[in-house]
């Protein structure tokens, strides 16, 4: 599986570590009720299909990326920098 890093180009996935679901992790709730924090920390949609994930390019440019990847086939559907991604708060 290769990840097309916006700075480094297409790199083997072992240059990266994966943090998790970008749609959750980049949308930290402003209302820190127990329910909101619990959902943020623990609840995941875990789809069989397109999944936006936070990847960190530790073996390259050391940027955080949002990788949209199909979890059924590992096909990479799109990559963008986390800081400019649409869902970042």
């Amino acid at each position: 599986m290769r990840i097309p890093c916006p700075y480094c180009g297409e790199r083997s996935n072992d240059e990266f570590t994966v943090l998790g679901d970008a749609d959750v992790l980049l949308n930290r709730p402003t209302d820190m009720s127990l329910a909101a924090f619990d959902a943020y920390a623990h609840s995941r949609s875990n789809p069989a299909g397109p999944h936006r994930e936070l990847w960190y390019h530790y073996g390259g440019c050391r940027q955080w990326l949002v990788v949209n990847r199909d979890t059924r086939s590992h096909a990479v559907l799109g990559v963008e920098l986390a800081r400019t991604s649409q869902r970042a708060s």
């Binding site: 995941r44 875990n46 789809p47 069989a48 979890t71």
Partner: peptide, 18 residues
Amino acid sequence: GNSSRVAQMAGLHLPIES
């Protein structure tokens, strides 16, 4: 490994990643 998909059929969101 398919627990999340099946649980979502009943409206449940699980603390699980596959």
